[in-house]
Design a protein around this nucleic acid. Structure first.
Length: 260
DNA sequence: ATGACGGTGTGGCACCGA
């Protein structure tokens, strides 16, 4: 089975790329998208359906917005963190059946945080607290679980092109990294780090300052797997070439392959 | 040091992203 996450930074703009990418990766069973930036009435259900996929979506105007694309119908779909009243559309979860087994797939667009002394950082911390409470319930109910998306956290200095430049910034703060570690401590594994990877591997590059060309990036898009899935993880890759296309998203997709 | 790029909205720029 294969799962993937991609922050598309506007699905209205990136839909042709998404459809091309799905066609080029026909073995992917489920994809979660972030930053669709579409209200639900504008979601391209027909186009994605015509490509042969089921889709669940949850969006809002201008910002945020998530979707779950899958080959089989997603069951028990949940939108946003249960128990946390959130005006922003950031989470979508569903249970898909792949190779005869049910897997809980959670797609999430974690808050950015903006600056450590901002209200948005307070929101990020509260959101992360609530995520963990809800996720604990999800993990109890679903042995095979994958949570993936744009975490807006670079877990380690090796995930940052210039760690010194990020001291005192969001995405790398001790508080955010403690939250990431708390997810790991719940019994989740960062699939990307199960394998030897090229140094300076990132999933996001700033549009400005020739960020991609200079490989000034961050690894903030992650796929975490539960212990029941971990032994089967065969590979985890960042689809870096997607960032080279004309009109690319600022994020590249991340793909995990799991057997068993 | 700042802004730079790209996307959205109802715009003539401001905002947000990370």
């Amino acid at each position: 089975m294969k799962f993937a996450t991609w922050n598309v930074n506007s699905l209205a703009v990136r839909l042709p790329q998404l459809l091309d990418w799905l066609a080029a990766n026909p073995d992917i069973d489920a994809v979660v998208l972030q930053e669709t930036k579409l209200t639900d009435d504008k979601f391209p259900t027909m186009e994605i359906g015509a490509a042969g996929y089921q889709v669940q979506w949850f969006g809002q105007k201008t910002y945020n917005g998530v979707a779950l694309i899958s080959k089989t119908v997603a069951k028990d779909v949940v939108k946003n963190i249960v128990g946390y009243a959130d005006e922003q559309a950031r989470v979508i979860a569903g249970t898909v059946t792949v190779d005869g087994s049910e897997v809980r797939v959670i797609g999430a667009y974690f808050p950015n945080g903006q600056a450590l002394d901002s209200d948005k950082f307070v929101y990020k911390m509260a959101w992360l607290d609530s995520l963990r409470v809800w996720l604990a319930e999800e993990m109890k109910a679903h042995e095979k679980l994958v949570i993936m998306g744009d975490f807006n956290i670079a877990p380690e200095d090796q995930d940052v092109y210039d760690p010194a430049a990020f001291v005192g910034q969001t995405h790398t703060s001790p508080q955010e990294r403690a939250h990431f570690q708390a997810l790991i401590d719940m019994g989740l594994t960062d699939a990307y780090r199960m394998f030897e990877q090229a140094p300076k591997s990132y999933s996001w590059w700033d549009y400005r300052m020739l960020g991609f060309q200079k490989n000034k990036g961050l690894r903030i898009d992650h796929i975490l797997v539960s212990n029941a899935l971990k032994p089967g993880v065969r590979s985890c890759v960042i689809d870096r070439p997607m960032r080279k296309l004309p009109k690319p998203s600022d994020h590249a997709p991340v793909i995990v392959e799991i057997s068993g």
